[in-house]
Design a protein around this nucleic acid. Sequence first.
DNA 1: TAGATACCTTATAG
DNA 2: ACTATAAGGTATC
Length: 295
Amino acid sequence: MQTGSIDLGPYEPFDLQSTVESGQSYLWDREDGRMYDEPGAYGGSAWYTTVSRAFEDPAVIRVRQVDAGLEWESNADAESVLRSRLRLTDDLHAIRDTAPDDDVVQNSFDAYWGMRLVDDPAFETLISFICSAQMRVGRIHGMQQALCRTYGESVEFDGRTYDAYPRAETLAATTEAELRDLGLGYRAPYVQQTAEMVADGQGHPEEARDLPYEEAREYLTRFVGVGEKVADCILLFALDFTEAIPLDTWIRTAIEEYYPSCDRGNYAETSRALRETFGGTYAGYVQTYVFHYLR
DNA sequence: TAGATACCTTATAG
DNA sequence: ACTATAAGGTATC
């Protein structure tokens, strides 16, 4: 086992629980299994685990927050992966400075100060946000666990068995009926067909990374089950488009309530207006705080 | 092109 | 106990 610690000094503030339990990522499990169950349940020093494909073999990465910083355990040299996945080098103070000085935004920052955007792998994010349609955060997470348990490669680590996220080829080879049995509902064919598209080389979410923002969003909607909202989630949580604002039910409520002038009747125009209001480049960061605050 | 509707499943409210 | 409702929307008509 390899272990290490990361000094949070230069990267403060940082809040691991908010970062991995705020509905941005469905790829982390809490070792005590209490994730999402009890709102407000303190997980300040809990261990979180994910299985990464950033190495030759699937790597189990465990991490927890302690007073001095971050501690990790892995079967690989996980530090650089953690730095990027948890966006440890983002300057939260500078980002907050770009946000509007109104009550909703400032209260959201105060409530979860230290929460980072995540930077997850693109395929995993594509599939998990297809699953997110009309679902609660806890159940979306449960679906991903079911997919990993059923179709993911197993890894032994520290006396336990962990499951990697399934590969596109594996999900492509499933059937709608199998996925419905896992509880995916009407999302089952979306997941199977999208996995098939990726496996067959008809497209890959990484292809969107170097496109201009709105073209990137348009590109992602080629995948079955991906509309504008899910496309924005993939851009924000996996492809480093910090300006992307997913317009979900919570943010739409916030627009109605606090930013009525941003409602332009359609997704693209409303999105632009709110992006402007939220400060442009880091508007997605602001959205993530507001989403977590209102949820 | 904009607008209405069906869609799996389950937790929660009443 | 039982029904209605809504959950980080999308595809289809």
